[in-house]
């Protein structure tokens, strides 16, 4: 079951592990410069609001409700990353395979959406191994940032792969580990101990119709997408959950929901100039997958605009004064998590 609380999607499979909950939130962040360099991971500037789509009058877009799921506001060129946070009480974390797509183009494999899992190429990520996803898997250890763009202008990744596509939004499928595999994993964990991940990128810090948004590719950053170390047979394909996130233009959010949309974030230059941290994360115990061949040639929003109207966005400067926090997990053996 998937429910919504405090702008987080909570995914549970109580028939496999009653005490486990996966929280997924959509983190607002800085748009990193699209300057040909690979950047560090940007921080969280708070969560995007999430609402049940069926609770609002969508006027001439009422048909969108048949997709179910949630609705979320984004300004054009807003950037986001996905946070996968595990909350378990006494048992170890239940591994879950997650497929992520934008406009029904898989963000890990670059292929068109199909239900189920593939291992060649791997079209999913695995939590708790993967704490975040910031963008499209364009190369080993490199992603291109998720950036909101209006549908219909050829800026989104889905429109680059299929010019007629008008799906928009973000799609998820969650596949839990089979119960028998999970029981075995728990037994193994009792002898090995396990690592606990802590999320450190969180900074403490008259009716209109809606314009649908999709996701385009922004600047490039360093992020590994890890290989599934459990194997494809470990996943319970008879017990999957899906969710469609419709993206609404934030300028219309007040009209749709009666709520103020989140403010557009500060620029990456302003953030760096204030001496605030960027992040680096690398788990040397895990193997990262190859970049998706189908995504290797996608153009960034800036490149597309360059072609269209000569660099409308302008881009940012490379942040040479960035303060970087290495938040990679420590080597196994350094941290003991005990049995609880």
């Amino acid at each position: 079951m998937i429910n919504l609380k405090n702008d987080r999607m909570n995914v549970r499979f109580p028939e496999i592990c009653n005490e486990y909950e996966l929280n997924i939130s959509f983190q607002r962040t800085l748009r990193i410069p699209d300057d040909g360099n690979d950047h560090f991971l940007p921080p969280s500037l708070g969560k995007f609001p999430l609402r049940h789509i069926e609770d609002f009058d969508l006027v001439d877009k009422e048909h969108l409700k048949k997709r179910g799921g949630l609705i979320m506001p984004m300004f054009q060129s807003d950037a986001l990353w996905l946070s996968f946070n595990c909350r378990s009480k006494r048992s170890i974390d239940l591994p879950i395979a997650i497929k992520v797509a934008t406009g029904k183009i898989n963000a890990v494999s670059g292929l068109k959406w199909e239900n189920g899992l593939d291992s060649e190429p791997q079209n999913y990520l695995v939590v708790p191994d993967q704490p975040w996803l910031d963008g499209f898997n364009v190369g080993r250890g490199t992603v291109r940032q998720f950036v909101a763009a209006p549908l219909g202008e050829g800026l989104t990744v889905e429109e680059q792969i299929n010019a007629n596509s008008d799906v928009g939004g973000i799609q998820f499928e969650f596949i839990p580990m089979k119960k028998e595999y999970f029981e075995k994993l728990k037994l193994e964990a009792q002898t090995e101990g396990s690592q606990e991940f802590h999320d450190m990128r969180m900074m403490s810090c008259s009716k209109m119709s809606i314009d649908e948004m999709g996701i385009g590719a922004g600047g490039s950053m360093r992020q590994e997408i890890y290989e599934d170390e459990h194997g494809i047979d470990a996943w319970d394909l008879d017990n999957t959950k899906r969710c469609f996130i419709t993206l609404a233009n934030a300028e219309q959010w007040l009209s749709i929901t009666g709520e103020e949309p989140p403010m557009s974030p500060i620029s990456s230059e302003e953030y760096t100039d204030a001496g605030l941290p960027w992040f680096d994360y690398f788990d040397e115990d895990k193997i990262s997958i190859e970049g998706a061949e189908a995504l290797s040639d996608i153009k960034s929003i800036k490149d597309i605009y360059k072609q269209k109207i000569k660099d409308l966005f302008g881009g940012g400067t490379s942040s040479q004064n960035q303060k970087v926090h290495d938040i990679s997990p420590k080597k196994k053996g350094n941290i003991s998590n005990g049995f609880w």
């Binding site: 079951m1 049940h52 069926e54 997709r67 949630l70 969710c243």
Partner: peptide, 17 residues
Amino acid sequence: PDHAVLSVVRNITDGDW
């Protein structure tokens, strides 16, 4: 039991897409 309580919590719908 917990699973019965969870069944009355509003779930996010999944539709045709």
